[in-house]
Design a binder for these strands. Structure first.
Lengths: 144, 144
DNA sequence: TCAGTCGTAACAAAGATGGTTACTTCAAAC
DNA sequence: GTTTGAAGTAACCATCTTTGTTACGACTGA
C-alpha cells in the first residue's frame, strides 16, 4: 500500500459529482461514484462524510437521496480536501521520547520540527494552488 | 502511528555519528545510537543498512566494529536520506483501476499524476535545502 | 406502507512500521 | 587459535492504517 489514496478518491468523487450536476442531475449516489472509482459504496460514503463535516458536500436521505456540492468546484482547492481527510503530519517525530540526557536526544525534536513545518507549509501552498475545477478540466482534457 | 518516523530516526542517527566522530571517536555502535533514540539496536542497524546501500555510511565488523560517515555532514542533505529510505510516492493513485468507460474514471489518473508530481518536486527541493550539518547545528543550538 | 439511499457498526484482510529474540558471521585483540 | 564484541539477518509478533465487505437501522419521498 505504502502511500494512501484517500486524496485521490476524494478528488475523484468531487469531480464526478461536479460533472454529474453540470449535466443536469440533482444528486449523485455513493453507488454511482463507487462504480466509477471501482471501490465499495461504503468507502465513498465514509470519505464523503468527512468532506461533509468540512462543509464541502451535503447529503440527502430517503428516496432520491444522494450527494451534492455546497459550492462551485472553482472555489474548492485540493488543500480544502486534504485538510478534510488527512489528520496527521507528513513526517512523524520519534515514537518513543529520545534520551533527554544526550545532546542529540535533547535537541533533535525541536530541530526537526522546524524543518518539517517548513515542508508542510510548502505542500499546503502547492495544494491550495489547484482547484477541483482545475482537476475536472484536466480530466476532460485527457484524450480518449 | 499515522505518519512514519523513519526520516526522523535516520537523521538522529547521522547527527549522532557525526557529533561522536567530531569528538574524536572512530566508530559508533548501533547500541549507542539506539540508546540515544530510545529504540532497539536492530531497528538502527536496519535503517543504517539502507543508508549504507545509498553510500551515506559504512560499517565495520568484528571487535571495535561500528558505523562511520562516508562524507561530511555538510555534504549530506535530508533529500539524500529521504531517497535512501522512502521508496513510495507521497500520494497514491487508486488502489484498483477506475472505470475506463467513465469520463472521470478515464482521465482522473493522468490529471492527478501531474499535480502529485509537482508537489513531490517541491518537497524534494525543500528537503535538499537542509544539510545534516544544518540539523546538527540546530540541535546544538537548542537550550538545555 | 414501500422502496431506495444514507449512516454506521462490525469485522476481516493486507501492508507498513517498529520491537524483540536469537543466531550467524566477522575481525581485532589476546 | 581462542575469545570477544558488534554487525548481519531471519523470524516472529504487536500495533496501526487503510480498504473492502456485510449487515442493518434510519430516514424520506412517493
Amino acid at each position: 500500500m505504502s502511500a494512501n489514496s484517500r486524496l485521490t478518491i476524494a478528488a475523484h468523487a468531487l469531480a464526478w459529482i461536479g460533472l454529474y450536476q453540470r449535466q443536469g442531475h440533482e444528486v449523485a449516489t455513493s453507488e454511482q461514484i463507487a462504480s466509477s472509482a471501482n471501490t465499495n459504496p461504503v468507502v465513498i460514503r465514509r470519505l464523503l462524510g468527512e468532506l461533509r463535516a468540512a462543509g464541502l458536500v451535503e447529503s440527502r436521505r430517503g428516496v432520491g437521496a444522494g450527494w451534492t456540492l455546497t459550492r462551485d468546484l472553482k472555489k474548492m482547492t485540493l488543500l480544502d480536501v486534504y485538510d478534510a481527510i488527512e489528520p496527521g503530519p507528513l513526517f512523524a517525530l520519534h515514537r518513543a521520547s529520545p534520551d533527554e540526557g544526550c545532546v542529540i536526544g535533547h535537541g533533535i525534536q525541536p530541530a526537526l520540527q522546524d524543518v518539517y513545518a517548513g515542508i508542510e507549509c510548502t505542500v499546503r501552498t502547492e495544494l491550495s494552488k489547484t482547484t477541483l475545477e482545475d482537476v475536472l478540466q484536466a480530466v476532460l482534457a485527457v484524450p480518449r
